[in-house]
Design a protein around this nucleic acid. Structure first.
Length: 649
DNA sequence: GTAGGGTTAG
C-alpha cells in the first residue's frame, strides 16, 4: 500500500516499453543471451564501472567486438557518474541506436554538471527525446531542483503525465536545498500517500536545515512503525543520524531504543519494523561524533550482523582520536577491508605525520578511488611536503583520475606553501574550467593570491563570490590585506563584515590587530582588542598578545611591550618574542633585544633567526666586536644559517 | 544501463 506510487510508476514504464525498441532483445534470442559472450562482457563492464574503475572499463569497451545498447549505456553511465560529460556525449552521439535509457542518461549527465550552460543543453535534449518515461521527467525535475531552479522544477512536475514518489522526493529535496522548509513540508503534505523514501527525503533535509524538532514531530505523526508501512526504519535511521550530527546523543539513543530489536519477540516470519545494520551504524556514529568511543565500541561489540560500514565507522573513530594502533588492529581483523577502510588508515597515518607509511599503504591498495588520491595529497600538503604533493597530483592525472574541488583546494594550498604564483594561477584556471567553486576553494585561492603578493587577484576572487561568504572567506581577505600592510582596506572590510552581521572569530581579530600594527594604530588596536572581549565574548589568545606587542613595539613603545609580556596571562611564545625582537632592531634597543633573543634561542635552539637579527643590529650600530661574538657563539652552538636570513639585512 | 531516500573515508 505504501508503494502505491512506486507501483504506479512501474506501470507507467511497463506501458511505455513496447514502444521503445530495445536493441539487445530484438538482436538476439533471449534464451541464449544470458550466457552469451556479449552478456558476460556487459556484466564485467558494469562491475568495473560500479567499482569506479573507469579506465579499465573503457579498455574493455574498446576491445569488445560486439556491443549492444546496454554496452553503450553502461559506458555512458560510467562517464556520467564521474561528471565527464564531454566523453559521455561523444559516445551518445556515436552510438548506432539509442533507447530511452540512453537519453535519460545523457540528460541526467548534463543536469548533474555545474553551470547553467549544461542545464540548458540537458533541457534541450529532454525536449528532443523521441520517447519519455517517468524517469526522464524525474531526471529533469530533480536536475532543476538541485540547481536551485524550483520554478522550472514545479512547472515540469505539473506538466508530467503521472507522478510517483520519486517526483515528489525530488521537489521536496529541492525546497530543502534552498532552505525553504515551509514549502517542503507543505508539498510533502499534498502527497496522497507517504512512503519511507519521501519521509527520509524530508527528514534528512530538515536535519540539514537544523529543524530537528519538526523532523521528530513528522516522524511521530507518520506512524510509530507498526502499521504496515514499508521500511519505516529508514526514516528512523535518518533522524538518528541527524541527532548525531547535531550532537544530541541522548535523543538519538531514545529513538534507537524505540525500534524493536530482532530478539524482542519471536515473530520472525512477518516482515516488520525492526532495527537493521544501518540503525546500529548510525547510533554508533552518534557516539563517534560525540567522542564517546567507549559507547561506540560497546555497540560494535554487541552487533550480531556486521558489515563493512560498522568496521569502517569504528576504524574512522580511532583514526579521529589518533589511535592508529587500535585502528590498524581493526583493519587487520576485518574480513574484507574495502577502499574506505584503506582511505581511513591512510588518512590517520598522514595526520600523524607518518607520510612514508601512509604512502606505503597507498601504494599497496588494491583499488584507489578519487578520495584515496585526495587523502594522500592532503596529507602531503598538511605535512608541508609540497614537492611530494605535486608529484602525486601529476601521477593522479596520469592515471586518469580527474581532480575535484577537494583535490584542487589541497594543491592550491600547496602552491601557497611554495609561494608559487604561476602554479597557483594555473590551478585557478583549472578551477574555473572544471568545478563550481565552493567556500573552501575560494578561501584557498584568496590565501594563495595574498601570500604570493597578488592582493588584487585575491580581491577579485573575493568580489566574484556571488553567494554567501562564510567567516573563513572574510578572514582570508582581511588577513590578506593586513599582511600586505593595507590596513585601511582590512579595517574597512572588517567594518563591512560586522555590518552584514557575520560574527568574527579569534582569527579575524588576529588579522585586525595585525592591520593596526602595520598602520601604527596603537589606540585603535587596544580598542579592537577590548571590543573582541567585551562585544564578541572571544577569549584572547597568545596570538592576540603577540599582535599587541607588535603594535606597541613598532611605535617604539618597547618598555610598554615588555610590561605587557610580563603581565599577560600566557607564557610568551616565539611570535611574541619575535615581535619584540623585530621592534628592538628597528628602534635599536640592544638591551631588550638581548632579552628577546635569549628567550627565542631557548624556545628554538636550532633557529638562526635571532642570531642573525642580533648580528645585524650590532653591525648597524658599528659594534663589530659584539657582532663577531654573536657569529662565534652561533658557530659554537652549531646553528646553521638558514636560507632567507641575510647577514646584511 | 537511467530519476528520489538511511550509516562509513578526503
Amino acid at each position: 500500500m505504501a508503494s502505491l506510487y512506486v507501483r504506479l510508476s512501474r506501470r507507467n514504464i511497463v506501458e511505455q516499453l513496447p514502444r521503445i525498441r530495445c536493441c539487445h532483445v530484438s538482436a538476439s534470442p533471449t534464451h541464449n543471451y544470458n550466457s552469451s559472450p556479449l552478456n558476460q562482457s556487459n556484466k564485467k563492464l558494469s562491475n568495473l564501472i560500479r567499482s569506479g574503475r573507469i579506465s579499465e572499463a573503457r579498455t574493455l569497451f574498446d576491445s569488445m567486438k560486439r556491443r549492444d545498447t546496454v554496452t553503450w549505456n553502461s559506458m555512458i553511465s560510467g562517464y556520467v557518474q564521474r561528471r565527464e560529460i564531454a566523453r559521455a556525449r561523444q559516445l551518445f552521439d556515436e552510438m548506432p541506436r539509442r533507447d530511452v535509457v540512453s537519453w535519460n542518461l545523457i540528460v541526467s549527465g548534463y543536469f548533474s554538471c555545474c553551470g547553467s550552460r549544461f542545464v540548458e543543453e540537458g533541457r534541450r535534449l529532454f525536449e528532443l527525446m523521441p520517447q519519455r518515461d517517468c524517469v526522464s521527467w524525474n531526471t529533469v525535475i530533480s536536475g532543476y531542483a538541485k540547481n536551485g531552479r524550483m520554478d522550472q522544477a514545479l512547472k515540469l512536475f505539473n506538466a508530467m503525465p503521472e507522478h510517483n514518489a520519486v517526483s515528489y522526493n525530488a521537489v521536496i529535496t529541492g525546497f530543502l536545498l534552498n532552505g525553504d522548509v515551509e514549502s517542503a513540508v507543505g508539498f510533502f503534505r499534498t502527497m496522497p500517500e507517504h512512503d519511507s523514501t519521501s519521509l527520509c527525503a524530508l527528514i534528512s533535509g530538515l536535519v540539514r536545515n537544523g529543524e530537528l524538532d519538526l523532523a521528530a514531530g513528522i516522524l511521530r505523526e507518520c506512524g510509530n512503525g507498526d502499521d504496515g508501512k514499508d521500511d519505516l526504519v529508514h526514516a528512523y535511521n535518518t533522524l538518528i543520524a541527524g541527532y548525531g550530527q547535531r550532537g544530541h546523543v541522548e535523543e538519538a539513543r531514545r529513538l534507537f531504543d524505540g525500534i524493536p530489536d530482532d530478539d524482542d519477540d519471536g515473530n520472525e516470519g512477518k516482515r516488520r519494523f525492526r532495527r537493521n545494520v544501518v540503525s546500529w551504524n548510525s547510533m554508533m556514529m552518534c557516539y563517534v561524533k560525540a567522542g564517546d568511543i567507549v559507547f561506540a565500541r560497546e555497540l560494535f561489540d554487541r552487533m550480531v550482523e556486521r558489515d563493512n560500514c560498522s568496521w569502517n565507522t569504528l576504524i574512522s573513530c580511532y583514526v579521529q582520536i589518533s589511535n592508529m594502533e587500535e585502528a590498524s588492529k581493526l583493519f587487520r581483523e576485518m574480513p574484507s577491508p574495502d577502499v574506505l577502510s584503506w582511505n581511513s588508515i591512510i588518512s590517520g597515518l598522514a595526520q600523524k605525520g607518518d607520510l612514508n607509511l601512509a604512502k606505503d599503504f597507498f601504494e599497496r591498495m588494491p583499488h584507489k578511488n578519487l578520495i584515496s588520491w585526495n587523502t594522500i595529497i592532503a596529507g602531503y600538503e598538511k605535512n608541508e611536503d609540497y614537492k611530494g604533493a605535486i608529484k602525486l597530483f601529476s601521477e593522479m592525472q596520469l592515471e586518469g583520475e580527474r581532480p575535484d574541488k577537494h583535490t584542487l583546494s589541497s594543491v592550491i594550498s600547496v602552491s601557497t606553501g611554495l609561494v608559487d604564483l604561476y602554479l597557483g594561477k594555473q590551478l585557478h584556471q583549472l578551477v574555473t574550467k572544471t568545478v563550481l567553486p565552493d567556500s573552501p576553494i575560494n578561501n584557498s585561492l584568496i590565501t594563495m593570491y595574498s601570500r604570493c603578493g597578488a592582493i588584487v587577484d585575491a580581491c577579485t576572487v573575493f568580489n566574484e563570490i556571488k553567494l554567501y561568504k562564510d567567516v573563513i572567506t572574510w578572514n582570508a581577505m582581511i588577513g590578506g590585506y593586513a599582511s600586505h600592510g593595507s590596513a585601511a582596506e582590512a579595517l574597512e572590510l572588517f567594518k563591512l563584515m560586522k555590518r552584514l552581521k557575520i560574527h568574527p572569530t579569534y582569527i579575524t581579530f588576529i588579522s585586525v590587530l595585525n592591520a593596526c600594527a602595520h598602520a601604527g594604530l596603537v589606540e585603535e588596536g587596544w580598542r579592537q582588542f577590548k571590543s573582541m572581549i567585551n562585544d564578541y565574548g572571544i577569549e584572547p589568545r597568545v596570538e592576540h598578545f603577540a599582535s599587541l606587542v607588535d603594535i606597541l613595539g613598532r611605535q617604539g613603545q618597547l618598555q610598554e611591550a615588555m610590561d605587557l609580556i610580563n603581565t599577560m596571562p600566557f607564557k610568551p611564545d616565539k611570535a611574541v618574542w619575535g615581535a619584540l625582537l623585530g621592534a628592538c632592531r628597528v628602534h635599536n634597543n640592544v638591551e631588550l633585544a638581548l632579552v628577546a633573543a635569549d628567550a627565542l634561542i631557548r624556545l628554538e635552539p636550532e633557529s638562526s633567526a635571532p642570531y642573525v637579527l642580533l648580528y645585524n643590529m650590532y653591525a648597524n650600530l658599528g659594534q663589530w666586536d659584539d657582532a663577531e661574538s654573536v657569529r662565534v657563539l652561533m658557530e659554537e652552538k652549531n646553528v646553521k644559517k638558514q636560507a632567507g636570513y641575510s647577514w646584511v639585512d
